[in-house]
Design a protein around this nucleic acid. Sequence first.
DNA 1: GATAGTTTCATACAAGTGTTTGAATTGCAA
DNA 2: TTGCAATTCAAACACTTGTATGAAACTATC
Lengths: 220, 220
Amino acid sequence: MASDHTRSAILAAAERLYADRGFGDVTLRDIVAEAGVNLAAVNYHFGSKDELIAELFVTRSIATNRERLRELKAAEENGGGRAPIEVILRALVGPTLRGCLGPENQRSTAARFMIRASIESVPPIRRIKNREIDHLRKFAGAMRRSLPDRSDVDIYWGLNFALAMAHHTIRESERLTKLSEGKCDLDDVEDVVARVVSVATMALTAGRTETNAPSKMAAR
Amino acid sequence: MASDHTRSAILAAAERLYADRGFGDVTLRDIVAEAGVNLAAVNYHFGSKDELIAELFVTRSIATNRERLRELKAAEENGGGRAPIEVILRALVGPTLRGCLGPENQRSTAARFMIRASIESVPPIRRIKNREIDHLRKFAGAMRRSLPDRSDVDIYWGLNFALAMAHHTIRESERLTKLSEGKCDLDDVEDVVARVVSVATMALTAGRTETNAPSKMAAR
DNA sequence: GATAGTTTCATACAAGTGTTTGAATTGCAA
DNA sequence: TTGCAATTCAAACACTTGTATGAAACTATC
């Protein structure tokens, strides 16, 4: 019934600021200034700063996970319950990469916020974050169905490495650009997605299960 | 000339606390309590909190980089100026992984501190961190020598992915353990190193330069 | 248009931060 | 021992943080 204007203005401002500057250096006063509302409004509408962050994170979690699962489900139905591993991986890392890379003006605040959340891990978020494991398990399941003769250990490592490459590339995109003197084009998002998916696919399908063969012996 | 006892006690305590709890929630008062010295000692010996952090980071940066370069140099001299790519990658990710993973009691505080620094990126560290690019460039050079017919872009992407897998695995080691229900053994450090090196090697040596072929077209 | 409930606002509060101060203590040379 | 510099210490300072308060302004129902 209420106007809700102030409430959503706070949410939008907070998400923008957190996405840009991280949780560490954004104060309530920054948020209300950006939103153009009174300081007390945050506590009035959300109870506390932590609850504001939590609401932001929960909302975005649900949305992101739904998007990823939508792609995954479509892929599996398309293939009669068994999707190609590349498509699964693309559903896993594609949405996030697309949201966080690409030309400055078309980056999604939501995705950048989620990356921050996955990096800085402030207490209110950490408490919620455990549910994400269940979400990842669905992808692990799809990967297992796609590669039935691959061991569970390999599946999990492949999943881990796929997320690693996607997240790290986002986090360190500036450094990679500088290091490569612009040769690596982070604005060409689909190329980045293709690279990540390609390497992760190789990791998951390479050779025989030489998985644990060269380990302990190869120690220096 | 001076006793130096207080000074090094502060350094040790600060490193321990930062490694364990991150920069966000460690106050000067925590540090001096852990070190058993007076609050004013930090400002007396280091000037400011930021300078303390900076000194810590510079010291560890130099040490870590020296260790990595030592392995790299040895490998290249061993091969007459051209080291196998696996060995280069091992020199890149090995020291960090070994310091941050493995049984709890033998993890290096220094390495865990450096990981924190590479993640949280507090201002005094961010200012220094740009030099790391020069350090990575040395690895890029060695990789180029090892794979002379590989394009620069591919080299940089391979380097990026190798660091991605190493760092992400460290940062999310708990989650991977939980997700895999213990099937992924993060305590077997040499296995982890072997996996990361293996995947990164594949990324760098795979097939033809189909690197930028499937990119823009594949966009949905 | 009066009234009750909701929302906004300026302001104050308590707690915590890094830093400074100036007096005490220490260590060491003359 | 005396004297002087280096170091330690308790205390306070200035500032920022999230939160609470109570009055004002608004909104909608009767």
